[in-house]
Design a protein around this nucleic acid. Structure first.
Lengths: 234, 234
DNA sequence: GTCTATAACGAGATAGAC
DNA sequence: GTCTATCTCGTTATAGAC
């Protein structure tokens, strides 16, 4: 699990990695079908052709298996968004934001079960350990990177912000390496929640009764997010 | 389920209603503990002290029971928000919006399992019938009612909106009895998705690593939503 | 040392006979 | 309706194979 070592090349190690991947793949398939709450170590073991106790050589517990699945999903999304953000470096910030948002959406549509796993209802009886945090923030950090790399933001309307909130913003900006004012910080957070809120609505079926073209709506929303943050269009 | 009749007053009918309520309460408790995916008619029956076959006299299937639970949750939220919106009639629209948004949040915090049931990951193998739509849109309609009852909206920045999207907005506005332009329509939709997006993040644990005061953040976000829609502050 | 299989536990749900 | 046998679950102890 640490993966800290430089990955030994022996046959033993190779086999281990492959079996681990096979277990994860089978578990992902199970989650896709029955939902994460029902994930059973035994069923996964059966699918891979091993005995349940053997799985414990690879994962300490059912929760550890779930955690690995969650981290894998976060990293898949993180890879995808980071790559997208990087590939648009130099382009106007507003465009970059919209493209990155669309990338998040594309990933979510291609991996609906992974999306549900990480952004859906928490699994009863499962508490995510801190291991997930690093991977879990990659997509958000990539999006915020666009703001960070923008020299001069357009002016935006600023609202009054409570002192408690302003204080927490200071810590947050430090964490993210952001150098913007409180209004922009709030705009970034609301844009972020809007992006995933809209996506959650779409994927979980909340929009299907009145939205005919989800992508068009999402693109329009992303554009308005970029403007609300003050990302320049040129 | 229909509840269309004027509720007969006989003893028989009373008993039936009470048993129904007892079953629903037990089912809700189960959902709260194990998650909706695991809901088993038998378990619910046992909790209420009857045999599984008897439950079928009250609910046609497990899915019908789930549907009843979902409708109940939607109506609980709908009642709460509608009452809140009504009680602030006459006050400045921006204030009304913020108060209504806070009402949604309060309800969600008090009924986290109901919230997860209706806005969380879809239950594997369960398809919501159209019966849920009427109740499911009540909260949104109540929020939008604030916009509808506002005589003169403040001007907002307008973005370009794709023709496909503009066309779907026409139908949506007609459905909602709204008389606003495309930019405001988009602003309402993005505000709506932002509201529930932020709430979903909070309830599902996505904010707990960097937000210290969720209510303050939510209030600030709601205020900026009201402004983005152009709801006047006075 | 590393892995897998057998067997078993206690808990919980389920199915069927009565 | 009840009781009972049977199943699955997560997890561990143990013993043998590479």
């Amino acid at each position: 699990m640490p993966a800290a070592e430089p990955a030994p090349t022996g046959v033993r190690a190779r086999a281990r990695i492959e079996v681990r991947a096979a277990i994860l793949a089978a578990a992902a398939k199970r989650v896709a079908g029955d939902g994460a709450a029902d994930l059973s170590l035994r069923a996964v073991a059966r699918d891979v052709g091993m005995v349940s106790s053997a799985v414990y050589r690879y994962f300490d517990s059912r929760d550890a298996l779930l955690t690995a699945l969650i981290i894998e999903a976060y990293d898949s999304l993180g890879d995808f968004v980071e790559e997208q953000v990087e590939s648009t470096r130099g382009r106007p910030a507003a465009e970059r934001w919209v493209d990155a948002a669309l990338a998040v959406r594309r990933w979510a549509l291609e991996h609906p079960n992974d999306y549900a796993l990480i952004y859906g209802t928490p699994i009863p009886g499962y508490a995510a350990p801190d291991d997930t945090v690093a991977s879990g923030t990659r997509a958000s950090r990539a999006l915020i990177g666009i703001v960070r790399e923008t020299d001069r933001l357009d002016p935006i309307v600023s609202h009054h912000i409570e002192p408690v909130l302003a204080e927490s913003f200071v810590a947050l900006r430090k964490e993210l390496g952001l150098d913007v004012d409180d209004a922009t910080t709030l705009a970034v957070i609301t844009a972020w929640s809007q992006l995933f809120g809209l996506l959650t609505f779409e994927l979980f079926g909340q929009t299907r009764n009145f939205v005919s073209d989800d992508e068009a709506l999402f693109r329009a929303a992303a554009t308005s997010m970029a403007a609300s943050i003050g990302l320049p269009m040129t």
